[in-house]
Amino acid sequence: MIYAYAKLTVTNPSALEEYRPLAGPALARHGGKVEQASGEPMPLDGAPDLPNVAAILSFPDRAHAEAWINDPDLADVHALRRGAGRSDIVLLG
């Protein structure tokens, strides 16, 4: 199992609303899922630039995570997420 940290600073809420119902099935297509998500992330230490939405994603392995982000059939789904605001996803491992 490998994890990814996703954070989104929302500037276009309507794009985020379009993205939400598509996100889970897009992840599942490559064995991924949302392990935990929050619309109210809280810093434990330091002064990080907090997003509006933060999530921990899981995938069976690195290859599945890379297949998810690079899947041409999911380009529109990723574009919706990116269009919702600043979107950063970091693979942990």
Score class of each variant (00 low, 15 high):
85 G>E: 14
81 R>W: 09
64 H>W: 05
67 A>E: 06
82 R>L: 14
74 L>P: 07
81 R>M: 05
45 D>T: 00
75 A>H: 12
79 A>S: 00
62 R>Q: 09
77 V>K: 00
46 G>N: 11
48 P>S: 05
89 I>V: 15
89 I>F: 10
83 G>I: 14
83 G>Q: 13
58 S>W: 07
91 L>H: 10
91 L>Q: 10
58 S>A: 01
68 W>I: 03
82 R>S: 15
74 L>T: 11
83 G>Y: 13
84 A>W: 06
66 E>H: 06
85 G>L: 11
81 R>I: 13
78 H>M: 12
65 A>C: 10
77 V>C: 09
48 P>F: 11
76 D>V: 08
83 G>D: 14
48 P>Q: 06
79 A>V: 02
87 S>M: 12
74 L>V: 11
72 P>D: 12
77 V>Q: 00
52 N>Y: 00
92 L>K: 06
57 L>I: 05
79 A>Q: 00
57 L>D: 02
58 S>G: 00
71 D>M: 12
76 D>Q: 13
74 L>Q: 13
57 L>G: 06
80 L>R: 04
91 L>R: 08
62 R>C: 05
62 R>T: 10
83 G>H: 14
67 A>W: 03
91 L>C: 08
88 D>L: 06
77 V>S: 00
69 I>L: 12
85 G>A: 02
59 F>T: 01
69 I>R: 10
77 V>F: 01
65 A>D: 06
67 A>D: 04
58 S>K: 01
90 V>M: 15
60 P>L: 07
92 L>W: 13
73 D>P: 05
57 L>E: 04
75 A>L: 09
57 L>S: 05
79 A>M: 02
78 H>C: 07
90 V>K: 10
72 P>S: 11
55 A>E: 05
60 P>T: 02
60 P>Y: 07
53 V>I: 15
47 A>G: 08
58 S>Y: 03
69 I>V: 03
71 D>F: 07
71 D>E: 12
75 A>T: 12
60 P>F: 09
65 A>L: 10
53 V>Q: 09
62 R>F: 07
50 L>P: 08
45 D>K: 01
80 L>S: 03
54 A>M: 12
89 I>T: 15
52 N>E: 01
90 V>E: 14
83 G>E: 15
46 G>C: 11
63 A>I: 02
92 L>R: 06
53 V>T: 08
58 S>V: 08
69 I>T: 04
50 L>H: 10
89 I>G: 10
78 H>F: 14
75 A>I: 12
68 W>F: 06
77 V>H: 00
61 D>R: 03
86 R>H: 14
75 A>M: 08
71 D>T: 06
59 F>E: 06
63 A>R: 03
66 E>L: 14
88 D>F: 02
66 E>D: 06
88 D>H: 02
50 L>C: 05
79 A>R: 00
88 D>Q: 02
70 N>R: 07
52 N>I: 01
61 D>P: 01
64 H>I: 02
91 L>W: 12
61 D>H: 00
80 L>V: 03
51 P>K: 02
72 P>M: 10
